[in-house]
């Protein structure tokens, strides 16, 4: 069995992002943080895209498609892309299964933060 996608290094560990999730990689994109949260945003092809930070390496931005929503992930070091030998758990490199990066979980966590941020923004009395 073969798996298609992007091999990255995340906080020193190898990880895999399937090709149906990872869309493309960009370098040196200006990322602006949301104050009070771990979230950031970036302007990609004229669209504002939320950015989840997973590590200190901020040069590359992996743009993903999560259930039709464009989400960018920073803090990753892209290593290889293509079709790899592996199974449903991920590609196998040197007899080791490289785990799939749980981007969905990160997105879920960030959704909670985004909602908190938005509600605090809406409740701010002086804006109304």
């Amino acid at each position: 069995m073969s798996v298609a996608g992007l091999l990255v290094r995340c906080r020193g560990q190898l990880a895999f992002i399937p090709a149906n999730v990872a869309r493309y990689v960009r370098y040196d994109v200006v990322v602006t943080p949301f104050p009070g949260t771990d979230l950031s945003m970036a302007l990609l092809a004229g669209r504002v895209v939320p950015v989840i930070s997973l590590g200190p390496n901020q040069r590359a931005l992996v743009v993903c498609d999560i259930e039709g929503e464009t989400i960018a992930v920073s803090g990753l070091e892209p290593l290889k892309s293509g079709i790899f030998e592996g199974d449903e758990q991920g590609p196998i490199e040197s007899d080791t299964v490289i785990p799939i990066l749980p981007i969905h979980e990160y997105v879920e966590k960030s959704r909670g933060q985004r909602q908190t941020y938005t509600s605090s923004f809406e409740e701010d009395s002086w804006l109304s």
């Binding site: 073969s2 298609a4 996608g5 992007l6 090709a19 149906n20 990872a22 869309r23 493309y24 990689v25 960009r26 370098y27 892209p78 290889k80 892309s81 293509g82 079709i83």
Partner: peptide
């Protein structure tokens, strides 16, 4: 290198049959 990464990703998305050549060149 970035272009090669993105090309490889595109080739991978096309599937093994049609994207293999693109993936090989990208690699």
């Amino acid at each position: 290198k970035l272009v090669a990464l993105n090309t490889g990703l595109e080739g991978a998305r096309l599937g093994e049959s049609s994207g293999k050549a693109l993936v090989a060149i990208a690699e």
